[in-house]
Structures are given as C-alpha cells and as structure tokens.
Deep mutational scan, measured.
Amino acid sequence: MPGGGPEMDDYMETLKDEEDALWENVECNRHMLSRYINPAKLTPYLRQCKVIDEQDEDEVLNAPMLPSKINRAGRLLDILHTKGQRGYVVFLESLEFYYPELYKLVTGKEPTRRFSTIVVEEGHEGLTHFLMNEVIKLQQQMKAKDLQRCELLARLRQLEDEKKQMTLTRVELLTFQERYYKMKEERDSYNDELVKVKDDNYNLAMRYAQLSEEKNMAVMRSRDLQLEIDQLKHRLNKMEEECKLERNQSLKLKNDIENRPKKEQVLELERENEMLKTKNQELQSIIQAGKRSLPDSDKAILDILEHDRKEALEDRQELVNRIYNLQEEARQAEELRDKYLEEKEDLELKCSTLGKDCEMYKHRMNTVMLQLEEVERERDQAFHSRDEAQTQYSQCLIEKDKYRKQIRELEEKNDEMRIEMVRREACIVNLESKLRRLSKDSNNLDQSLPRNLPVTIISQDFGDASPRTNGQEADDSSTSEESPEDSKYFLPYHPPQRRMNLKGIQLQRAKS
C-alpha cells in the first residue's frame, strides 16, 4: 500500500489531465453553448442521470443573480465542470439528445442517441419513463405552439383585415386629398384670375382717368384759346370803332377846312374895312368942321342928330352885343352839340362793343353748352356701355358659378359613389376574411389534438420509441430542437415537474 501511493497520485493526475482536456473543448465553445442552450431543457435529463440535484437545479433556474438565459447556462456549465468526467459525459449526452448541432460542434462527431448513462443509472424502465415524459412534454409544447400558431394566424388575419381596411381608408383619404388639391388648384386659379381682372380693371381705370385728364386739359386749352380769340375780336371791334371815330373827325375837319373863306376874300374885306374906317374919319372931320361953321339952329339939329346917332349907336351896340352873345351862345351850343355828338359816338361805340361782347359771350355760352351736351352725351354713352359690360360680366359670372356648381355637385356625387364603392369593397373584403377565418377555424378544430390522450396510444408510441432511437435521429431532433426563430415568436414553456403513473402502461404491456 505505501508503495502504491505514487502510482495512485500519477493516476489521479492523469485523470485530472484527461478531464481538463475534455472540458477544454467545452470551454472553447462556451460562448456558443451559453448563447443557445436552454438550461430548463437540460436539467431534467441531468437530474435523471443524478449529475445534479434539486438544489443545483433551483440555483440554475431560479437564482435572482442569474437574470438572463446566458448567465444560467454559464452557471450550469460551471456546476457540471465540478462534476468531473461524469458531468462531461452526461452533458454531451444531453447535447446529443437536445442540441445535435452543438454536440457536433463540441465533439466533431455525429449524434447517435445511445443514452448509456441513464440506462446504467435507471435501467430501461427509467429510460422509458424519461422518454415518455419527454414525449408528453413535446406534445404539450407542440399543442402550445399550435395554439400560439393559431392565435398568430388569427392575429395575422386580423392584421391583414386591418391592413385592407387601412388601405381602403388610405384610398378614401387619397380621394379626399386629391379632391382637396383640386379644389385648392381651382381656388388658386380663381385667385389668379381675380387678381388679373383687378389689374385689368385698375389699368382701365388709370387709362380712363388719364384720358379724362387729357380731355379736361384739352377742353381747358380750347376754352383759353376761345377766350383769347374773343379778346382779340373785342380788341378788333374796339379798334374798328376808334378808326371809324377818327375817320368821322377827319371828315369834319376836312369839311371845315373846305368851308373856310379864301385869302383873297379876307384881304378884300380888310380893304373894305380900311376904306370904311377912312371914310368914317373923313366924315367925322367934316362934321367937326361943320359944327364950327354952322348956326345955332343947325347946331341944335346936329345935337339932336348926334344924340339920335348916339342912341342909334347905343342901340346898335346893344344889338351887336346881343348878336355877339347870341353868337357866343350859338358857339357854345355848337360846342355842346359837338361834345354831345362825340359822347353819342362814344356811347354808340361802347354800345356796339357791348353788343359784340354780348354776342361773343352768347356764342361762347352756346359753345360751352354744346360742349357740355357733348360731354353729357359721352358720359351717358359711357355709363350705358359700362352698365352693359357689367350686366354681361355679371351674367357670365352667374353662368360660370352655375356651371361650377354643377361640376362641383357632379364631382361630389362621383366622390360619394367612389367612397360608397370603396366601403362596399371593404365590406366584401371583411365578409370574405370572416368566411375564410371561419373555414380555417373549423379546419383547425378538426385537426387539433385532444387534450387527454388514451393510455393505449401512449403505450403504442413508446413501443415504437426504441427503433426510432436507432434510425431516425433527424426526426427526433426536428421535433425536440428549438430554433432561434421559434424563440422569437413563441413563449418558452415550462412543464410541471411531476412523475407519471406507469401502472397503466405496465398492465397494457403485460396484456400485449
């Protein structure tokens, strides 16, 4: 015994090295194993092979420090690593049964499904019991997946119906949107047309105001020219009257000059006056001389005659003075006559000038009245044309509004008919989907599995289990394997941990 101590140590070291070499393959693929292994699927088989106990299973599945599946799978690998070579062998058998691809990844061999460990530990009855539990578990999982698949199909059909409904609603909204954009385009076109009409109206108003201003300026210029013409006519008439007055005065002077006595007659009258003065002096001298030589009687007679002569001279002087006064009065009367005649001529000139001015103003008033009548006639014609244009424009607008209203009513009726057609199509689609759903539900009910399987069917299934373990590994792997896509769409199922009653199965096998 003492001599065998070193050999035992060498043997233990060799086993430990082999164990480390075995687990080295697992550690190399630890990331892939932790990512894809579900500990809840492996722990029943590991407990059946007595590699882990209930406490280890509870620690792996329910520990609060292991929230994710990767953490739980890593903890399970750590626990199996502590179990040595047996933990490695049982772990590979569980991978061979549940995850053939991972088994091939770790060992590089094809899975054979021999279950040597569980046969050694529990015997064939334990293997049968384990396989029966796994089959029931798989059936329950398949039923749950079928239910989930039916629910998802129903949800899918519902979503398809909602999608069709949303599509129809979208078509309806597109119809309304198209109608909205069309009405918006019509409104924009009408606004552009309105702005264009306003611009045209403004341009016409500006043109009309400009023409009116030009016409008023032309009328004012015409009036100024007419006033200048009238003033020139007035000056012409005044000059004609002055010329006529000057002509009359010149004719009067000419007549006075023609009626003036001649120079010879004046000289002859002056000679006669001198001769008479000479004779008068001679007679006076004779009379003076006679007075001195005459007697007293003759002197008395001469005195009487002288007195008579003096009286006659006085009378004559009075007559001469009277004649002079009369001549002066006649001259003054002639001057007054000439003055009055001049005033008369001036008044006649003024009267004729005023008459011509009156005629001029009368003509001017007639011209202004004619212009006013023409302006009123043009204004009435413009008003009439404007009223006709406004009436025609309003009539066109009324007809346009009428046609637009008819078009809008027809478009609304068309839209309502399209919407009604879309709604009826939606109703038809809904009815078809309901009919299809009812038909599929009836087919699913016919094809669904019963909840409680008979014992004979279970025994028959387990009677055929042994050949399947040898020759149909691919079928078992397809039913027991969970793909990543299934984990996305289906909830994980945790079967209840219970042991099955095998009395009925044993009785059935005894009868057979």
Rank of each mutant, 00 (worst) to 15 (best):
K137G: 09
L127C: 11
E96K: 11
D78M: 01
Y103D: 00
I52Q: 07
H129G: 10
C49V: 09
L92M: 08
H31F: 04
H31I: 02
G4L: 12
E110C: 10
D56S: 08
T128E: 12
E125V: 13
H124A: 14
Q85N: 03
E125D: 14
V90I: 14
A40G: 09
D78T: 03
A21Q: 02
P64D: 00
L138W: 05
D20L: 11
E93M: 09
A21C: 07
T82Y: 12
L42H: 10
W23G: 04
G87N: 00
L80R: 02
Y36F: 09
R114G: 11
E93W: 07
C28T: 12
D9F: 08
E19T: 11
C28D: 05
N71H: 08
S116E: 08
E110K: 05
D146I: 10
I52C: 09
I52R: 08
I52V: 11
K83M: 05
P64N: 06
P64S: 08
T112D: 15
H31C: 14
P44W: 01
K16N: 06
L92I: 08
E122Y: 04
V89D: 14
R35Q: 04
R72N: 03
L46H: 05
D10W: 08
K145H: 09
D56M: 05
A40V: 01
Y103L: 10
E93K: 14
L22Y: 08
E24Y: 13
M65E: 03
Y88D: 02
R114S: 12
L77S: 01
K50C: 08
P64A: 13
S94V: 10
D20A: 09
L76Q: 06
A144S: 12
D56A: 08
P67H: 09
D10A: 11
R113F: 02
E122C: 05
T14H: 15
L105V: 00
V90D: 00
T112R: 11
H81R: 11
E13H: 12
L61H: 01
V90T: 10
L76K: 01
N38I: 01
N133T: 12
W23E: 00
S116R: 05
L102E: 14
I37Q: 03
P111F: 03
L77F: 06
N133L: 14
L105P: 00
Y103A: 05
L80H: 02
K109T: 08
A73F: 01
L80K: 03
P39T: 05
L76R: 02
H124G: 15
P111N: 10
I70G: 01
E54Q: 10
F130W: 14
E19F: 12
I136A: 14
T43M: 08
E110S: 03
R113S: 15
T128V: 05
E110Q: 09
K145S: 09
Q48N: 10
I79F: 06
F91T: 15
K109M: 00
K83R: 11
C49H: 15
T14Y: 12
R75H: 13
L33C: 03
Q85T: 00
T112H: 15
Y11W: 13
E96S: 02
K104N: 06
L46R: 08
E57P: 04
D58M: 12
T117S: 15
K137T: 14
E93R: 15
T128A: 09
K69G: 03
R47K: 08
K50F: 12
K137F: 06
K69D: 02
S116H: 06
E18C: 10
I79C: 03
V26L: 03
K137E: 08
E134V: 13
Y45T: 08
M8G: 13
P39E: 02
E125I: 07
C28N: 06
D146F: 08
L80Q: 04
I37W: 02
Y103F: 08
L77C: 01
E13C: 12
P100S: 00
K83D: 03
H129S: 13
A144V: 09
P111K: 09
R47D: 04
L46V: 07
N25Y: 01
M12W: 04
I79V: 07
M142T: 13
E122N: 14
G123N: 15
W23T: 11
L76G: 01
V119K: 15
K50G: 13
T82A: 08
L105S: 00
K137W: 12
I79M: 09
R86V: 13
E101K: 00
K109Q: 00
A40I: 02
D53A: 10
D20H: 14
I37C: 03
P111Q: 08
N133D: 01
E27A: 02
V90S: 12
G123D: 15
D9V: 11
K104A: 08
F130L: 13
E54T: 11
L127N: 14
H81V: 07
C49S: 15
E101G: 00
G4M: 11
Y98L: 14
N62G: 02
A144K: 12
K16S: 08
N133Q: 12
V89T: 04
L15S: 04
F115L: 14
K83T: 10
Y98K: 12
L131I: 01
L33Y: 01
T128G: 08
L131A: 10
N29E: 00
M12R: 07
P67T: 13
L80M: 07
S116T: 11
P39V: 04
A144C: 12
W23M: 02
D78L: 03
P111A: 15
I70K: 03
E18I: 15
T43R: 09
Y11S: 09
P64Q: 03
S68Y: 11
L15N: 09
Y36H: 13
Y11R: 13
G126Y: 14
L138R: 13
V51I: 12
G5P: 11
D17H: 13
E125W: 14
L42D: 04
M132L: 10
D56W: 01
R47N: 09
E110V: 03
I136F: 02
Q48W: 07
R75P: 00
W23S: 02
V135I: 13
M8L: 14
I118M: 10
F130I: 15
E110M: 02
L105R: 01
M65H: 09
T112A: 13
R75L: 05
P67G: 09
